[in-house]
Design a protein around this nucleic acid. Structure first.
Lengths: 332, 332
DNA sequence: TTGTAAGCGTTATCAT
DNA sequence: ATGATAACGCTTACAA
């Protein structure tokens, strides 16, 4: 691999001149520039980003930490964040921790050693020790999607309360009164916020949720199935259900199918996230969508801007959900 | 951020001693070691991986290039590869190119500049100029999942012919004779191999596929829907269908539902990949599974081993599919 | 066992 | 406009 030195030698100039030519930092004589560019081409020279990074104390790198990769929300976010980062000249180091706090710390540690310019992560359910680690190191960090109520880092989140409201308003507008909700883990703030918005929307129409119509799931398909089992083995049954993500909604759908109930004929069903699942099911799933692309853009912007400014004021950016109506909901 | 120098100063030893202590490269006096480790702890010292990498001419980095991230196969592979890489002390730089050859080249270029120790990628449909780029740079590269018939790089692939065989044998064993296949893009080698295996399996039982029972899809849900439309608007209809991935199979399922045909009552349906979709549908999807975890492990091993050895013999590792039987297939 | 010094590939500072 | 030099943080001969 040729280095600056080789280019300089071949072009018959000093290393500094080559560097200046390539970085257009300072005017350079036309003829020298031509000679340098020639040499660069001949040697197929590529600047060594490790050396550049060492010098600049910046790896031009963004670290992205997710609980897992094979789930719609995370895969969506990763893909969008990858786009934005590259557009701004940064590469993405991606890692997942599966909810393991020790692993998460190890990942953060590595990112710091690699001199990433920022870390974007989504909180796992358990309060991990990342705060100290990140704050001490001075690396800017932004939480995306899954944050605490009062987050100590910058955060880009959905207005989850509003998401709940939208689901609730849609179902009550259709005349439903016996309404159930399959939540995410209630330890996670966004599950609670969604539920609160949902409850408030119903209350606004004079509807209250029976306590055994609120089932706590874990965002996985299987928990949706279990929730539906629970809901439909009791004496009284809901005519509408909101599941706080599409996976669980599809779980509900599967169970309803297996006990011979039709959607939306017998039960109306709303999901959340507008993942690619939503258009694949029969019937297509009405769902509350998140603006992933916008969230990604904001997260990248925020984390890079934190690098410059003084980082005492954690900024929180809240984006709006939207309702996508398909065939899984109908008038009561 | 403290450096070796700071640690050395605090411990009252030279930088080399600190380095040796930390890397256990050479025996060090017990008392010195203690002093050094004390200083490390006090300063919260973290070795700078940029500097280390510059010195070692190795970023301890693996580059992973995929067509996209939000699809089961890729998300699965990324997650597994992430695990393996970290386990071996490497971080993952992930990037996706959406089938854009120019973007792909830019990504490869960046990876080379970053001194990645290897590149793992999945081929897009179009023959891109990556060969020259990668070969010239001398960076080891391994193709995973989607490779050419005679791949110039190392490759870790499924035995796609066998996958087709398994699907075909399963359906003929159930007594089906009117059998259709929804393929991936036929420009891609693995689509052709799967189809060939499928055809051969049927031929072994004396069954041939009518030509209009082979529909070319693009691995997306929508193309599955379209394929089913095509298949069921003709006069004669198949009693069994194999779709070369689960997304398309679910598309078929959706269309069948919409025209009132039941699976497996009227039509048996087999998918491929055993993605998380397969267990979510009603009925659960019988499907041919890929050993993603094993593929990932092999790819990481291979690409890192290429770094050492002379890289003239591209190695090809082929792994076996397996059949997962659920509820979407039945005797004719 | 420990220290000194050179070098990995850049860029910024200071001369010229 | 260009060149020499030091420095970024680390490892590794070579010396002591």
């Amino acid at each position: 691999m040729p280095s600056l030195k080789d280019v300089a030698r071949l072009a018959g100039v000093s290393e500094s001149t080559v560097s200046r030519t390539l970085n257009r930092s300072i005017p350079v004589d036309e003829k020298t520039r031509a000679r340098v560019e020639d040499a660069v081409r001949k040697l197929n020279y590529r600047p060594n980003l490790l050396a550049k990074g060492l010098r600049a104390r910046s790896g031009r790198l963004i670290g992205l930490i997710m609980p897992e990769i094979i789930h719609f929300t995370f895969a969506d976010l990763i893909q969008e964040i990858d786009d934005c980062s590259r557009a701004r000249g940064y590469s993405l180091i991606v890692a997942h921790h599966k909810g393991d706090a020790v692993l998460e710390e190890a990942i953060i540690d590595t990112l710091i050693r690699r001199h990433v310019d920022g870390i974007i992560f989504s909180r796992g359910p358990d309060e991990s020790r990342e705060k100290k680690l990140i704050t001490d190191s001075g690396v800017p960090a932004v939480v995306i999607d899954c944050a605490f109520e009062n987050e100590e880092h910058g955060a880009v989140v959905l207005d989850n309360y509003r998401a709940g409201m939208m689901a609730g308003e849609h179902l009550t507008a259709l005349g439903h009164t016996r309404i159930a909700c399959v939540t995410g883990p209630l330890r996670i703030a966004l599950s609670r916020e969604r539920l609160k918005g949902f409850r408030d929307a119903l209350a606004g129409r004079g509807v209250t949720i029976e306590e055994n119509f609120v089932i706590e799931g874990d965002f996985r398909f299987e928990s949706g199935v279990r929730a539906a089992q629970l809901l439909f083995q009791q004496g009284s049954e809901p005519s509408a259900i909101w599941a706080q993500n599409d996976d669980m909604a599809v779980g509900v759908l599967k169970h309803l199918g297996s006990i011979g109930l039709s959607v939306p004929g017998d039960v109306s069903l709303v999901g959340m996230n507008d993942s690619s699942l939503a258009r694949m099911t029969t019937p297509g799933l009405t769902t509350v969508a998140q603006p992933y692309s916008e969230m990604a853009r904001q997260a990248v912007s925020l984390v890079l801007s934190l690098k410059q400014q003084d980082r005492t004021i954690p900024e929180r950016i809240t984006l709006n959900p939207s309702l996508v109506i398909r065939e899984s909901t109908a008038r009561v």
